[in-house]
């Protein structure tokens, strides 16, 4: 564990709490892509099939939290606050993402086993899981401030992981190509968002696309 990784994981936790706060406080999931949240649930379930494999208490508790919270968010969106979800805004075709990630995972993986291929699939899928949300944002052209804080924390979590990998490469000679490439792509997807978040939200303005 190092500073970057711990901060990254805490940002990831924070992003989920901000999302839950947004939904509970406004009693609405408007502006949130159900498809992105569904993809995250798929990511966590397929990645943490090794849940019973002991790494540390921290690792196990975080895995349980990520699986449970992602499924809870699906429940909030699909059942509790269903009326506030507008599917006509959430039109990104996730079938292509799922198909492409599965294909890539079958071809580019470390070991061709069931668990490993699904782990690789989850890494690739996480990289692109934010696309339906960003697509929704670009369609509506604006977002509630709290939703942008959620997206910022989520993007920051990924950006910090890049620093963690650089740190681990120099201190432990830790190499993980699959995670590096997917993580770099994932972080890059946030660059436009980061720019507008910095220009507008951090200067007290509403998030609006130019």
């Amino acid at each position: 564990m190092n500073f970057f990784r711990l901060t990254a994981d805490l940002m990831h936790l924070l992003s989920i709490f901000v999302l839950l706060l947004k939904i509970q406080k406004t009693r609405s999931c408007s502006g949130i892509s159900f498809k992105t949240q569904l993809l995250y649930a798929v990511v966590f379930v397929t990645r943490y099939l090794d849940l019973l494999k002991w790494i540390s208490l921290y690792n196990t508790l975080m895995k349980i939290f990520f699986i449970a919270s992602s499924i809870y968010i699906l429940y909030l969106m699909k059942i509790k606050f269903r009326a506030t979800y507008d599917p006509s805004q959430d039109t990104f075709r996730i079938e292509f993402l799922l198909g492409a990630c599965l294909l890539l995972a079958l071809v580019f993986n470390y070991t061709f086993t069931f668990i490993e291929v699904l782990w690789t699939f989850s890494i690739y899928l996480e990289a692109v899981a934010i696309l339906p949300q960003l697509f929704m944002l670009s369609r509506t052209g604006e977002a509630e401030t709290i939703t942008t804080h959620y997206l910022f924390a989520l993007g920051a979590y990924r950006g910090l992981y890049l620093l963690n990998w650089i740190w681990r490469f120099y201190t432990e000679h830790h190499i993980d190509w699959i995670v590096w490439v997917a993580g770099a792509i994932q972080t890059a997807l946030y660059s436009d968002f980061f720019y507008i978040y910095y220009k507008k939200v951090l200067h007290g303005q509403k998030f609006e696309l130019p």
């Binding site: 975080m62 470390y110 070991t111 490993e116």
Partner: peptide, 10 residues
């Protein structure tokens, strides 16, 4: 590089 890849990150 070990083939038994350890996934210790989240």
């Amino acid at each position: 590089h070990n083939t038994e890849h350890k996934h210790d990150e989240l």
